[in-house]
């Protein structure tokens, strides 16, 4: 089954999303900040990263750029998952190198479709 890394600083959101994805049969791991996210992604090489953008230590945009730059993780699928839902936020995420973008509050059905599309 596909492996998903959730990078999310909000404890409730992390808990909720990881539980829901696990129920859908994904193998899920979580990171609480951008830096930890990069480290875990590099080490674990998941099939997909769900990346929050407002993160402590290293924000989601920087983490995405770092992952896309490093040869080892350059091909990682990264989906931005953020409460920044204003005009321009999508472009900002895509410019940082994200493969797709979804907003909070999470519509699980929509998110699953996006995950499916990324995983091919």
């Amino acid at each position: 089954m596909a492996r998903i890394l959730i990078v999310e600083d909000n404890e409730m959101n992390r808990d909720m999303l990881s539980r829901r994805l696990k129920r859908k049969g994904f193998e899920v791991r979580v990171a609480v900040d951008g830096q930890q996210g990069v480290e875990m992604a590099t080490e674990w090489l998941p099939d997909l990263v769900l990346m929050d953008m407002s993160l402590p230590i290293m924000d989601g945009w920087a983490a995405t750029r770092a992952l896309k730059k490093a040869p080892r993780t350059a091909d990682l699928k990264i989906v931005a998952l953020t409460a920044h839902a204003m005009e321009g936020d999508r472009r900002k995420a895509m410019n940082a190198g994200c493969d797709d973008y979804d907003t909070k509050p999470i519509d699980l059905k929509r998110l699953l479709e996006k995950i499916k599309a990324q995983l091919g």
């Binding site: 829901r20 409460a83 909070k104």
Partner: peptide, 9 residues
């Protein structure tokens, strides 16, 4: 959106 995410989720 952040608390809403938790409520809906």
């Amino acid at each position: 959106r952040t608390p809403m995410n938790a409520i809906i989720g």
